[in-house]
Design a protein around this nucleic acid. Structure first.
Lengths: 157, 157
DNA sequence: ATTAATGTGGACTATAATAGTCCACAAAGA
DNA sequence: TCTTTGTGGACTATTATAGTCCACATTAAT
């Protein structure tokens, strides 16, 4: 039976996936939808309604992370550096937001002094792994298919 | 096979449980360890090394949330308003941080326009529920037992 | 070679979320 | 009535996130 908790604040939520990750995914989906050519940051920004300058930073990270390739100069742009099925959500989240973790041990004041035998710690790790496992199963290909099936929600052309 | 992702930033992590929740839990554990009397905010702050003024805010939230009771005036203080096994982690997290969510649908620009039939959305919801289910299974009693078994890591007396 | 189009890297600012502080006041015991 | 305690609201500080700007490197087209 669930205990009812009343939140005074309206719809406050703590979201695990932040905006930079969301932008990243939309950009990756866009690239996946336009294979075989270099797509400029400007085009992606326009189509996906992402601030261009911010998107450039994100694309730089994605480039360094090995998800996309970049071609400089006139007629340059970005392209997927991997097959869509080889890119998964966990990778993108961790690249953009850092490693996902429950938290450090929160019992004890200065960090837990008995981590090795802490049952709770093991629970955290298990949960972390379950979350990670789930996220790593969702690939860019899945996302692209979602977009293709639906009414072109990521559209713009 | 795992793809290796190199993070340039050192140990950057995005933690799900934030400090206010951690403080909350430490406070609740402290109360559970000292049943049958009113414990002042000052005592908890001292024992758990939490800034007093901040802890007071947290205790107010916990009071409004129904987890602890408060007794004003001289010799007043706080006490658990529920049995430790009736308080679970999910409740505390959601009280302090708001409802846990993956995110709103991130495909599409202005929020997803086909949420009802979105497979991904369902995946999110499933994952959210798994996480929630897990967190709701961990009770304050479990945490207290952890502390009792270990070398009094939350100690102070 | 020159020019225009493009990504790169670093520094910078803005906004928002989180953490933390302060104070006047209300309640209750001594 | 005095002291101890929690309450509520406003306030400040710090940090994380989001967003901007610009000088520069690279490349294609002319």
């Amino acid at each position: 039976m669930w205990t009812i908790i009343v939140h005074k604040e309206d719809g406050v939520t703590m979201e695990i996936i932040r905006r930079n990750t969301e932008y990243s995914i939309r950009a990756l989906v866009h690239l996946a939808l336009h294979p075989g050519r270099d797509v400029t940051a400007a085009e992606i920004a326009e189509a996906q309604e992402i601030p261009l300058e911010y998107l450039q930073k994100i694309l730089q990270k994605l480039t360094r992370g090995g998800f996309v390739g970049a071609q400089r100069g006139a007629r340059g742009g970005f392209y997927l550096a991997k097959d869509p099925e080889e890119i998964n959500l966990l990778q993108v989240i961790e690249l953009m937001q850092g490693k996902l973790a429950m938290n450090k041990c929160f019992l004890g004041k200065n960090g837990c002094n008995r981590a090795p035998k802490c049952v709770l710690k093991n629970n955290w790790l298990q949960l972390e792994q379950r979350i990670a496992g789930f996220l790593s199963q969702i690939t860019l290909l899945d996302l692209v298919e979602q977009v293709r099936e639906g009414g072109r929600p990521g559209g713009g052309e």
